[in-house]
């Protein structure tokens, strides 16, 4: 029996009057990659962003149901949202380095979370190595992060998340703004990261989902249609909608 890291129970999410997620229940296994697939507007990103409470800032978002990190109730008022976001990191669709140097992009959150000063350079070196970026940037850590290429920026954003040692990393189409070579690097990186982190990734790229994920959830119009192992979803889907979607008949 696999260990469950992150889960949603009967999650309903509304933006104003419009319901985006409909009674979603899903459980993500520890140290595996789970891919969320489905046509645009099906609620994949919205589901992803509800785990690290990124909807807190949208005044018209309303959430019903329960979300858990192990036994921690993510929307319980007692729990601090900053602690939750430290334990559940996120990588966004477009690389969004902070307008600071490469080094400061990683040291910023470490300082905010009061890591001891002397430990910071080592943590940063380890995270950059883990993100396959160290060799490319080790001599220019003071360079502004925006000067890096798109693919390097995205690996920096992953390193920035990794350096905080979160338990879960949410990835919202992390390769959609990147060229094929950078995409390949990120996929290799994800393969490596799942040894230490639980990864949930939203992707539009079927081949990518097939290459990197252990489990796949197909979503349509705010509902989870089918959730199973990667093999089953792509080779032997039970639901007709899933079949048609992965067959490229709509999307």
């Amino acid at each position: 029996m696999e260990e469950i890291k992150l889960r949603a129970e009967n999650l309903n999410l509304y933006f104003g009057k419009k319901q985006i997620l409909k009674n979603v229940s899903i459980a993500f296994p520890k140290n595996q990659v789970t891919a969320l697939i489905g046509p645009s507007g099906c609620g994949k990103s919205t589901l992803l962003r509800s785990f690290n409470r990124m909807h807190d800032l949208s005044p018209d978002a309303k959430i019903e149901g329960k979300l858990f990190l192990e036994n921690l109730d993510l929307y319980d008022k007692k729990n601090s949202v900053t602690d939750i976001r430290k334990r559940i990191g996120m990588v966004f669709q477009k690389p969004n380095p902070l307008p600071k140097s490469i080094f400061e992009n990683l040291s910023y959150a470490l300082n905010i979370h009061n890591y001891p000063k002397h430990s910071i350079p080592n943590l940063i070196e380890a995270a950059l190595k883990e993100s396959f970026l160290w060799d490319e940037v080790k001599d220019e850590l003071k360079k502004p992060a925006v000067k890096l290429s798109g693919g390097q920026q995205q690996r920096l954003c992953i390193a920035r998340t990794v350096v905080l040692r979160p338990e879960v990393i949410l990835m919202d189409e992390p390769c959609s703004a990147l060229d094929p070579l950078s995409t390949k690097k990120i996929e290799e990186l994800i393969e490596k990261l799942k040894e230490n982190f639980t990864i949930v990734i939203v992707t539009h790229n079927m081949q990518q989902a097939q290459r990197i994920s252990n489990k796949v959830a197909f979503m349509y119009l705010g509902e989870i249609i089918e959730f199973d192992t990667c093999d089953t979803i792509f080779k032997n889907p039970k639901n007709e909608l899933t079949q048609r979607y992965i067959g490229g008949h709509f999307g």
């Binding site: 976001r85 910023y108 959150a109 905010i112």
Partner: peptide
């Protein structure tokens, strides 16, 4: 996206405004 970058690291809204 810049605000989200900081917030997703567990930085408070005030720190995000002040530092980013």
């Amino acid at each position: 996206s810049l605000r989200e970058a900081a917030l997703a690291l567990g930085v408070t809204q005030f720190e995000t405004i002040k530092d980013v």
